[in-house]
Write a protein that binds this DNA or RNA. Structure first.
Lengths: 336, 336
DNA sequence: GTGAAAGCGCTAACAA
DNA sequence: TTGTTAGCGCTTTCAC
């Protein structure tokens, strides 16, 4: 089919070992021979077969990235950052988007294991931790992003959602809000459980009575944001503020509000995990807590590169600090 | 290292050929034997080595995707769509972002050729067409997206930028605009040359005098959009409308306008190739011509899958039709 | 129905 | 410095 070192060897009148040596810039190959071989490669248009090389070397120079959705600015930015970092280290990336299907995630992991990726960066459900741990034990470094793992300890980089949620609620309490709705993704995602914990805990700490019915689980999507806002506006004893667990949800809420003539923050306040796209052009200016996509991607890639290089055995949990960025989407309703 | 068919064979007391047969669901393997082998695989936690398989089969079940920038909604959506389509056909995707570096693009192509991807989808500079053509001749199907190729004929899917540009100018002429600035990306991108051609041609057709100084080349970025707007506002004999060649540029223009207090469309009109993010929340409502990311990705993936399956030899150029979607960012300045 | 064996394109001892 | 050779893990004839 395509040209191999054998062809090159014949053409240059050397052994395949020599060809291999020059293509790997190895040690002592006679200068004249080397240039003869290089010339033959050129002439024959030789392209090394990395599959064969990988088979021998047991390394593929590719890393796997598993996210839920490429069509989400948060993951897109993470991915973009990962790509930049690993590309400059000579790795390419194999990417899959698995939605919120644990099955797809599992299959993706299997595929990557079978294709023998050198490492995996994964943001996702948390439903395949045993499998992930098994893969790691089999020698594939794994970095988890965007959430911490409970059942096992993994290298990971994320924002402490519980802490962030507490910061948010404290902020809202200060502004006079007591009935606060939390609108977030699937209940079985650990990251949403963390938000829930932070929610409960901040109420507990402040002594304000909590109403767990105000915690709404759905999915990280615009549609759910729209739907949730509708539901909330129809509640009797309606909350005065909404905390959105994701940018997509926030965008849905804002769009629905615009459509339905609901004023933010006059009718209801809004604060979000992560800033929306084009926010500087949108009224009200969103109040949000930073989500740090860029840094998550960057660090995850760095950690993975290190693991793949050394056999560094200590586990790194990189927990990023975040702050609230004040806009105008939260009303101050203290009665003063 | 990891467990191989050899280990499984030993464990199940069969030959490696038999193991291979059961893992490939091949023909006639005695039921009892088959289940014994399956059991051994399970027990030993066997994971087929796809590198080895690929080496034999000369196919990798992975396709390469080369784009300029993952951090661009346009390409992100294309990629997302491609991923969905090919994933369901059993392929995984190897992705690289090459910015506007022809060199990086070349290296990316080389990497993909060496890793023996089964096909390539590429959106990019147009500076490596000879190389692309060579790869195709070597048996790697190639689909070009977002632009047509001049030097060679490739399978491709794109919007006819010249035609789109003509539609836009005609629309603007109707609204009374005669001095129209075109703000777009790098001059050496064929897609920008096409815009230029459409620009010129629409003027020619209508008999309105053209001023080529109003064609501004830069890069597909927010920064350039901001900069271009500043420059334009300082022109003597300022144009009455701006055509933006990319969503990122449009976003830059809008942000700069907001910052500098330039009103659109009162001070200057704006029309764009592609809609911005969150447009339904932004005033003025942008007037744009559809850019059809989703469909581009979808079709490109379909075409590639077909090429990889059959040896279908005819070349498909899929040129998508687009329309202008009217918002409120273009003023009617006819004097009636 | 099953096994032996050659070979995919490369690497890495080991010899020379 | 260079060549010979034995694999890496799999597929696939060809016998039996």
């Amino acid at each position: 089919m395509s040209v191999t070192i054998k062809d090159v060897a014949k053409h240059a009148n050397v052994s395949i070992a020599t060809v291999s040596r020059v293509m790997n810039n190895v040690e002592s190959v006679n200068m004249a021979v080397r240039s003869r071989v290089l010339h033959s490669m050129e002439e024959l248009n030789f392209r090394p077969n990395r599959m064969a090389q990988s088979l021998k070397r047991n390394t593929t120079n590719t890393i796997g990235v598993i996210i839920t959705n490429l069509n989400n600015p948060f993951f897109m930015e993470i991915t973009s950052e990962i790509e930049k970092v690993v590309a400059s280290a000579g790795y390419s990336i194999l990417i899959t988007a698995v939605g919120d299907s644990a099955k797809k995630e599992y299959d993706s992991l299997t595929m990557m294991a079978e294709k023998r990726v050198d490492g995996i960066i994964i943001a996702s459900s948390g439903n395949n931790e045993d499998y992930l741990s098994e893969l790691r034990d089999n020698g594939i470094p794994v970095v988890i992003i965007d959430r911490k793992s409970f059942s096992h300890r993994f290298d990971s980089v994320y924002i402490d959602k519980m802490k962030a949620m507490m910061l948010i609620n404290q902020y809202l309490f200060l502004k006079g809000h007591q009935r606060i709705a939390l609108v977030t993704g699937a209940k079985n995602l650990s990251t949403n459980f963390d938000r829930y914990l932070g929610y409960i805990r901040s109420y507990y700490n402040s002594g304000i009575p909590v109403d767990e019915n105000l915690v709404c689980y759905g999915s990280f999507s615009e549609e759910y944001g729209r739907e949730a806002l509708k539901n909330i506006m129809e509640m009797e004893n309606r909350p005065t503020a909404i905390v959105s667990g994701s940018v997509l949800i926030t965008e849905g809420i804002l769009k629905e509000a615009a459509k339905a003539g609901i004023r933010i923050p006059e009718d209801i306040s809004l604060i979000s995990f992560g800033d929306i796209q084009m926010s500087e052009l949108i009224q009200p200016r969103l109040t949000y807590i930073e989500s740090k996509q860029g840094e998550i991607g960057y660090r995850a890639a760095q950690i993975l590169l290190n693991k793949m290089k050394n056999e560094a055995t200590n586990i790194i949990e990189s927990v990023l600090e975040t702050e609230i960025v004040e806009g105008t989407s939260v009303a101050d309703i203290t009665t003063k």
